[in-house]
Computed example of a mutant assay.
Amino acid sequence: MPYVNIKTPEAGLSAHQKAEIGHRVTNLLVEYFSEAARPHTMVLIEEVKDGGYYRADETFVIPDGYRAT
């Protein structure tokens, strides 16, 4: 069973965008594993609260312009 775990800043993606990512990642894996993998593929998109990401020793907070509306 293919399993993909994507972590993204909270509120960075809309529900529609997350659904599209799930669909596109599933299609990508089906290209490699065959159509038989589709019903067994899991794509988990986890949202991490601001302050839960660290980059270059600094706490990462998603800029307002990047938040989904």
Rank of each mutant, 00 (worst) to 15 (best):
Gly12Lys: 02
Met1Arg: 13
Ala15Phe: 01
Ala56Asn: 13
Leu13Lys: 14
Glu46His: 11
Asn5Cys: 04
Ile62Asp: 00
Ser14Cys: 01
Val61Ser: 04
Ser34Gln: 10
Val30His: 08
Val48Ile: 15
Gln17Ser: 09
Glu35Gly: 11
Ala56Trp: 05
Asn27Asp: 15
Glu31Lys: 15
His23Trp: 00
Ala68Trp: 10
Val4Cys: 08
Tyr66Pro: 00
Tyr3Trp: 06
Ile62Trp: 00
Pro9Gly: 05
Asp50Met: 03
Phe60Ile: 00
Ala68Thr: 04
Pro39Tyr: 04
Asn5Trp: 07
Pro9Lys: 08
Pro63Glu: 07
Tyr53Ala: 01
Ile6Tyr: 00
Gly65Ala: 09
Met42Ala: 14
Ala15Ser: 11
His16Ser: 13
Thr8Pro: 01
Asp57Lys: 12
Gln17Phe: 03
Val25Ile: 13
Asn27Leu: 12
Leu29Asn: 09
Thr69Phe: 06
Pro2Gln: 03
Glu58Asn: 14
Ile45Met: 07
Leu44Phe: 10
Pro2Gly: 11
Val48Asn: 05
Asn27Tyr: 02
Ser14Trp: 03
Arg55Ile: 09
Gly22Ile: 06
Glu35Pro: 01
Glu58Cys: 13
Ile6Cys: 10
Thr26Phe: 00
Asp64Phe: 00
Glu31Met: 06
Ala36Asn: 09
Gly52Val: 02
Val30Ala: 13
Tyr54Ile: 14
Ala11Ile: 04
Thr59Asn: 00
Asn27Thr: 11
Glu10Gln: 15
Arg38Asn: 10
Lys7Ser: 11
Val30Trp: 01
Leu44His: 10
Ala37Trp: 04
Glu35Asp: 15
Leu29Glu: 12
Gln17Ala: 12
Ala15Met: 01
